[in-house]
Design a protein around this nucleic acid. Structure first.
Length: 421
DNA sequence: CCTCCACCGGAACTTACGGAGT
DNA sequence: ACTCCGTAAGTTCCGGTGGAGG
């Protein structure tokens, strides 16, 4: 969920393309075999996870992070470091950039200091974070079956034997702590591995995250802190200009398109990742059309494409009961009545009964609704009807047709949509 | 001012499952 | 074959709670 990796936008675009008479592939083939160089020369430079050699407007941050970690070159254990900032402010890119440089410098000097980057949200569990640590220490561990304590012990013995030290970056560490508490962080900050040491670089995009930490963990983890501010529209434009220069055919994007992408992304918290995604998809749209250059209309289309793609992706990966709940939200609100937890649950239960399914409890449905809320496909607020109780009011956030289109693909669900669109 | 509805949401517990180790 | 472990989904239990109506 959340941020998107590479998406097959290409397919959906290709399908929408009108078929003219004759060979439907002819257009495409001539386009791809023509002598004219393609719009996009280097796809990888337009991926948001690519770490460029230069990071515009982040020199100060690179210096700050570098200053803290540079003691590895002595080699002395660096202070633990905490990095805060919203999504797409360059935290990950800066961290990886510094890691790359320092890792080279360290191996030139012949020290065995290993730089490990772990994304806690992608790893998902404490167990998998630990197993990535073990992998960095050169021990392979089973996917499951061993206790966390055992895993930690294996990491320590391996590190001990190698006599090496670690700088571990825990990206999106707030996700880990929210789900599993800060025990692992506590263990790591005081890990004792013989002559070596473990330094932590925690990255969080939740600014209130600190409050969830045990004071002991907090004090040792944030010996040093660096805060990342969101990019402004002009800064985003600089970033996009860099990427476009590296990735696209010269002259393929005008200044107006860069500015537009930057402005659209800046409106959404100055998220550089979104800005770059937007530019990439815009270029892809233009490319597929055989356009000479990327125009404003391509950007607009790319934006709605990204949004639709996100919604579709999220909804179609929902488990059955969540989809039934979602369906109930949209059908009830379609009938005009206000959707409260009670009415929602009743409709949901009817659907379950007519499908021959055991309905989940209201408590469970309540958390499913919260999940849908967090995914942004419904919107909830808590209201009180006084004597008549307190409940959540659940409102749809996406046009009914779009949801109906996606949910309707399921035979079982489409029957409930009949006569509503 | 107090009551009491119709839920919310935290926490502990249960069940099912799949893999490891022995 | 059997035990131990982690994960995921779900249930049971229960202590709140904002505010219209008494």
């Amino acid at each position: 969920m959340g941020t998107q990796e590479e998406k097959p936008f290409l397919n959906s675009i290709a399908i929408h393309e009108k078929q003219r008479g004759g060979d439907p592939l002819e257009d495409i083939i001539t386009r791809y075999t023509s002598d004219r160089p393609p719009l996009i020369l280097k796809h990888e430079y337009l991926r948001s996870d690519y770490v460029p050699t230069a990071l515009p407007h982040r020199t100060e941050h690179i210096k700050a992070v570098g200053n803290v970690l540079a003691t590895v070159l002595r080699p002395v254990k660096p202070s633990n470091l905490f990095i805060y900032g919203k999504t797409g402010t360059g935290k990950t890119a800066v961290c990886r950039y510094v890691f790359n440089r320092l890792s080279d410098a360290v191996s030139e000097k012949g020290f065995d200091i290993r730089f490990v980057y772990i994304n806690c949200r992608l790893a998902g569990t404490e167990y998998r974070v630990l197993s990535e640590l073990c992998a960095a220490a050169g021990v392979s561990v089973p996917f499951t079956g061993v206790s966390k304590g055992e895993l930690f012990r294996r990491f320590q013995t391996a590190a001990n034997r190698l006599n090496s030290s670690f700088v571990v970056c825990l990206d999106e560490v707030d996700a880990l702590v929210k789900a599993f508490g800060d025990d692992l962080l506590y263990e790591l900050t005081r890990a004792n591995i013989g002559l070596g040491w473990v330094s932590l670089v925690g990255i969080s995009n939740d600014l209130l995250f600190k409050e969830q930490l045990d004071p002991r963990v907090l004090s040792s983890l944030s010996e040093e802190e660096v805060v990342f501010q969101p990019y402004t529209a002009t800064e985003l434009a600089d970033i996009l200009r860099e990427r476009a220069r590296a990735a696209l055919r010269p002259g393929a994007v005008g200044e107006d398109v860069i500015r537009l992408c930057a402005a659209l992304a800046a409106a959404e918290h100055g998220d550089a990742r979104r800005a770059i995604d937007l530019l990439r998809v815009s270029a892809e749209v233009a490319e597929r059309e055989g356009a000479e250059k990327v125009e404003e209309q391509h950007v607009r289309r790319a934006q709605s494409l990204i949004e639709k793609g996100r919604v579709k992706e999220v909804i179609s990966s929902l488990p059955l009961h969540s989809r039934l709940v979602l369906l109930a939200v949209y059908t009830v609100s379609r009938k005009g009545s206000e959707t409260t937890s009670g009415t929602l649950y009743n409709t949901y239960r009817e659907y379950c009964v007519s499908l021959g399914l055991d309905p989940l409890t209201d408590r469970r449905v309540s958390t499913l609704v919260s999940e849908l809320d967090m995914l942004g496909i419904v919107a909830c607020d808590l209201i009180s009807y006084g004597r008549h109780g307190r409940t959540r009011r659940i409102k749809p956030t996406i046009p009914f047709d779009e949801v109906a289109e996606i949910l309707g693909k399921d035979e079982a669900l489409s029957q409930f949509l009949d006569g509503l669109s």
